[in-house]
Design a protein around this nucleic acid. Structure first.
Lengths: 108, 108
DNA sequence: TGCCTATATGGTAAGATTGCCATGTAATGG
DNA sequence: CCATTACATGGCAATCTTACCATATAGGCA
């Protein structure tokens, strides 16, 4: 595999690390500031081990960093520009809903 | 599942539709302008049916639109802001490599 | 030291994704 | 009508992802 292929694979891995509902919720919460795992668990629900694994995926991809403080581990976004992208994702959704409005059910 | 959950699921689906090396290549190519499936097949390689399925994933997510013209089908990005996001993904990669530079192998 | 709390990791079963082959379909040319 | 071209879809095996449970680790406190 050449360099170009490797680059695309790395980029895909970073994007894939965002591509899960719980991980999006985590990113949005971290956009407000540093949070401990316990905070994030409260936000996304589910098992602590599941949250921990979601964080490991994002940490491995380089999206988040952690900082240990006593018993707790605090996570934060490593590259805040990620948040700006959410607006674009919402634009895709808006375009989709606009299409439905333009061509409602039964419209020729 | 409530509305908030549904929204996150939709967003995740849109992002997931980008999270694949071949699909990133396709998006980058489409950023340059409309392209037929045959063009895209040349760019990403592999089977035509595989390219076609990647396009279907992105079409379903609302990332691309198609336009038939005779025997060919031309695809284009539906919401161009997607491209801007690539810069942010590269920033994540740059941060990761910077970390390696700051803490090379064997550094305490 | 021994216990408690916060988080991480291993195991695993269910489900999703991927990529190829074979086949289907629609437009075009003869 | 028939063949060809460009693309899409069905099927399927290999692989990856996810979420839970059980267990491990590490810090703080008695």
């Amino acid at each position: 595999m050449d360099d170009t292929q490797t680059t695309y694979k790395l980029k895909a891995q970073i994007i894939k690390a965002m591509a899960h509902p719980s991980r999006l919720m985590i990113i949005e919460e971290l956009a407000k500031g540093e949070r401990c795992v316990c905070d994030l668990k409260r936000v996304v629900g589910g098992d602590m081990s599941t949250v921990s694994k979601h964080l490991a995926v994002m940490r491995h991809a380089g999206i988040v960093e952690d900082r240990k403080a006593g018993l707790q581990v605090f996570y934060r976004l490593r590259v805040p520009c990620i948040i700006q992208f959410f607006g674009c994702v919402e634009a895709v959704m808006a375009a989709t809903f606009a299409t439905f409005r333009e061509r409602p059910l039964g419209d020729a």
